[in-house]
Design a protein around this nucleic acid. Structure first.
Lengths: 213, 213
DNA sequence: GTCTATACTCAGATAGAC
DNA sequence: GTCTATCTGAGTATAGAC
């Protein structure tokens, strides 16, 4: 009897996901038809739906089917390393680079944008993405707290709020790249670092107003 | 014979747009059906399409049908006033408030997000929005240039790049509000101002490295 | 190939302005 | 009374998931 070859099946799934990824990035989820995906992947509708239960499932796979490659640390591992690093400020800058880096890849900003939108309407995707998101934000919060304790950043900043803003600034890199053709994420990364540096590093305390004892 | 009453017709269009706005904000453009809009507006499909040529036209109207109210300055007028203001730094902060303010309204962040997405796929909407966008950015560029000349901000910052980043930071307020339920735009506006202040205000010039004559 | 979902249409009913 | 803006809702054509 014929048995399934898991490696072959995975490869076939990846082939479909790769084809679909370009379409989703260029046209978005709703405007990409399964017929287009079939054509791009070179297969029939029947065959496509043998590998994925729905168009939605293909979209989800774009964001989770990343096979770990040997010898390369995963994002999770690198975040854990940052949390354990000796110098929290350097680790913070490294983490920002880690999170902002993919914005320079051609399809990624559009896909991230689309994922944000779709997460609104798709609780399963929402859950999928928020796991990643929580890990990123909690790493930043940890680093901000440590850097604050060691006097490397302004201690008046609230670590939770500030982590949310660091995430927002990184997200801005993606959305700007997705919406403005002239915006180059690679070229603007140094400016992002500059903004963060000036925002976070300790400042001379302003003289408090009002009468003093 | 019966004649058209322009005021009544406008009011009816607004009624439809208001009903549709909530649906577009909650579900997005593609997932909102014309049948739903009809139901929400309390009218038949035939009547709906008597007022709008297409579903798309309703979506466009969400962003352009803002009637100027008497006694209240329009955004354009306020931007022009800022460009002509005496104190460019104060005018810059005011302009940031003006552009960031709507993020505090409940439906706006989701709508702005949806507009960004749809603009990708709809050249007419793209043109519509980029007119607004260009006016906002060029106002910021002008103010940055003036503030730079008068020593109010760091002269090493490029006005065009910096204006793009100020826009990106404001956009981050909208996207964060749209995607993170715990993020309060009104509460975070002071932090946005703080980030901008620290980013833009003049800094002590670092001692240049290398040999000097 | 099948079948559902949905943007839009049309033939006609109602009613207000002249 | 006539004419036409406004409105109805069943109907159609088509797209697109499966």
């Amino acid at each position: 009897m014929r048995t399934v070859d898991p490696a072959k099946r995975r490869a076939r799934r990846r082939h479909i996901v790769n084809a679909a990824t370009e379409l989703f990035a260029a046209q978005g989820f709703e405007r990409t038809t399964t017929a287009e995906i079939c054509k791009a992947a070179g297969m029939s509708a029947g065959n496509l739906f043998h590998y994925f239960r729905s168009k939605r499932a293909i979209f989800h796979a774009v964001f989770v089917d990343d096979e770990p490659e040997d010898g390369v640390a995963t994002k999770s591992e690198r975040l854990a390393a940052a949390r354990a690093a000796d110098d929290p400020w350097t680790a913070l800058l490294d983490t920002v680079d880690l999170l902002a880096g993919p914005a320079a890849e051609p399809l990624v900003p559009a896909l991230v944008m689309e994922a944000m939108i779709q997460a609104h309407r798709d609780p399963e995707l929402e859950a999928l993405l928020s796991r990643d998101n929580d890990e990123e934000r909690s790493t930043l919060t940890t680093l901000l707290r440590k850097a604050s304790a060691s006097g490397q950043i302004d201690p008046t900043l609230d670590p939770d709020d500030t982590a949310a803003w660091v995430m927002a600034l990184i997200a801005a890199l993606y959305t700007s790249a997705a919406t403005e053709p002239s915006f180059s994420p690679a070229g603007q990364l140094p400016t992002l670092r500059l903004i963060l540096q000036r925002f976070l590093r300790p400042h001379a305390t302003p003289v408090p107003e009002g009468p003093r004892p």
